[in-house]
């Protein structure tokens, strides 16, 4: 178990002013914090919350795209999609492992996901009715994820930062793959281009919501910035994403579903229309079209797999017991 022997894994650290100042000085000096290092409980809790929710997002995120593996239009697309969804599972695995170094088990995290105690990115509560959604998710959802995640490669917590380096490489590949699907659709028949447009219409606003509430309404930001878990604000990252993505839509020849979207010479950025935060909160709180389905799918996988996990443990116990019986009696050294 990773959690064994970690300082503070039982939730206690001595957080006097000197301790906090020393910790902050390490952060300010850009030193990586490692699992065995002393850290404030708040830092540990924030990271467990963020890393586990990130892991859950990868795992739940397998479902909307998994919806098209059996129906992918060509063998090349089928293999690429299966490999991509498998990558998401791999990301979940590294992230759960990174969170485990902070003293929480994968089983506890899974429990939190299934009871709703832990959230996951609410983008995955939207459905994928057409093949074009596989393109749009790669292009927009993975594109937004990359904007969020590249700064995390420099996160102050070592295991998270290192996991993110590999994850970002794979996400960047997924993003190009998604864009290439969109490009193929947009260079196809009018019907294919319409599939791409419909999909952009459905995914654009939810993608912008992935960056979280406006800075003025974000509750966790300031402390996370000070601890260098987070390096840019929600609005900064959202703006970077919009500025990078609008020209890509223009190249595809499809239209962003925002009548207020306009280049601002003054700001050197795109202005955009108001985000529907009521929709955001509705979906975050469980009112998305697929919210219930996603959790019930994860619950079913967990429940249906229980006998398999129990059997694997029982078998491992039997093997250990047999080895103990079969082991020769130790002979004292002469």
């Amino acid at each position: 178990m990773y959690s064994q022997g970690l300082i503070g894994a039982d939730g206690t650290t001595d957080e006097d002013e000197a301790f906090l100042q020393h910790f902050q000085s390490r952060i300010d000096a850009e030193q990586k914090i490692e699992p065995n290092d002393a850290m404030p409980e708040g830092y540990r809790r924030t990271l467990i919350r963020q890393i586990s929710q990130h892991a859950h997002s990868e795992i739940v995120g397998m479902l909307p795209e998994g919806n098209w593996i059996s129906r992918a239009p060509t063998l090349r697309r089928k293999a690429a999609l299966l490999a991509k969804v498998q990558d998401e599972g791999g990301h979940g695995l590294y992230l759960y492992a990174a969170a485990e170094t902070l003293g929480i088990s994968r089983e506890e995290m899974t429990e939190q996901l299934l009871t709703g105690a832990a959230k996951y990115s609410s983008i995955f509560n939207y459905p994928t009715p057409t093949w074009a959604d596989i393109g749009a998710i790669g292009w927009l959802v993975d594109g937004a994820a990359i904007m969020n995640q590249i700064p995390l490669c420099r996160c102050s917590f070592g295991p998270y930062a290192r996991a993110m380096i590999r994850i970002c490489k794979e996400e960047s590949f997924h993003q190009r793959q998604g864009y290439e699907i969109m490009l193929t659709l947009c260079s196809g028949t009018p019907e294919q281009k319409q599939l791409a447009q419909d999909s952009l219409d459905r995914w654009w606003w939810p993608s912008l919501m992935m960056f979280g509430p406006h800075d003025s309404d974000s509750t966790h930001s300031d402390q996370s910035m000070a601890w260098k878990i987070k390096r840019f604000s929600n609005d900064e990252l959202r703006q970077k994403f919009i500025d990078a993505t609008v020209p890509q839509a223009e190249f595809l020849g499809i239209k962003m579903p925002d009548p207020d979207l306009e280049w601002s010479e003054k700001r050197g950025s795109y202005d955009h229309g108001p985000i529907d935060w009521d929709e955001f909160w509705r979906v975050v709180k469980g009112g998305g079209k697929c919210s219930k389905d996603r959790i019930s799918d994860r619950q079913a996988a967990w429940d249906n797999g229980a006998w398999v996990r129990e059997a694997a443990l029982a078998y491992a116990d039997k093997v250990r017991a047999r080895q103990a019986t079969a082991a020769p009696t130790p002979v004292a050294a002469e």
Binding site: G89, L93, N304
Partner: peptide, 15 residues
């Protein structure tokens, strides 16, 4: 096999 993706008994087995 691809029908299992996202639904396996453990994450390792999903992969």
């Amino acid at each position: 096999l691809s029908e299992w993706c996202g639904h396996a008994p453990t994450l390792e087995e999903d992969l």
